[in-house]
């Protein structure tokens, strides 16, 4: 199957901030520089739905020096996806665009509980078995991004976890 998707990867310079405006969709802004590709993977955004996706890396930013930006056309980010963002780049913002207008601006906030985002890294955890069970993790340290599996109670570092 051939998709008509275009993924634009645009290395930016301060004087070359040209990312096209979108009519409808989501703009994920203020992503920590270098996290853009990881966010695409975590959100399962791979272009298979045919929508235009724009990824800009290392864009100069007054707020955070350098940032990544993702624009996804014709798709609105769900709350679960916002939670995922919080674990990768807690200072990111999510802008929902409709008919070229910003209709909602969400600040990403780290939840107290993370459901069905990561798999527990403990191979002997019941959440990795064949039982009908979904992983649930408590956020025990929001600064250090430390989670605890609800089931096996192991302490887990976000950077070492795999996404569903």
């Amino acid at each position: 199957m051939i998709y008509s998707t275009v993924i634009q990867i645009i290395p930016m310079s301060e004087h070359d901030l040209i990312v096209r405006r979108i009519r409808d969709g989501t703009v994920i802004d203020h992503l920590k520089a270098g996290k853009g590709i990881q966010v695409l993977n975590a959100l399962g955004i791979n272009g298979s739905d045919g929508n235009v996706i724009t990824l800009a890396l290392n864009v100069p930013s007054a707020k955070i020096s350098k940032k990544d930006i993702i624009k996804v056309e014709n798709k609105y980010l769900k709350d679960d996806d916002t939670n995922k963002l919080a674990l990768i780049s807690p200072k990111a913002t999510v802008n929902i665009i409709k008919d070229f207008k910003l209709v909602e601006k969400r600040l990403v906030s780290l939840p107290n509980k993370v459901e069905r985002i990561f798999r527990c890294s403990n191979p002997d955890c019941i959440s990795n078995s064949n039982e009908d069970i979904e992983s649930i993790m408590d956020v025990v340290d929001k600064t250090g991004l430390v989670l605890r599996c609800k089931y096996c109670t192991r302490i887990l570092n976000v950077s070492e976890l795999k996404y569903y």
């Binding site: 955890c125 019941i126 959440s127 078995s129 039982e131 009908d132």
Partner: peptide, 29 residues
């Protein structure tokens, strides 16, 4: 048979259950 079904059935036949299982978190589940 899954652990979930086994536990479900046993809870129909008894007033209190005790479980030993090789997987971490099995009792919480």
């Amino acid at each position: 048979e899954s652990l979930a079904d086994t536990v479900h059935i046993m809870s129909l036949y008894s007033d209190v259950l005790v479980l030993r299982h090789p997987l971490d978190g099995s009792s919480r589940f």
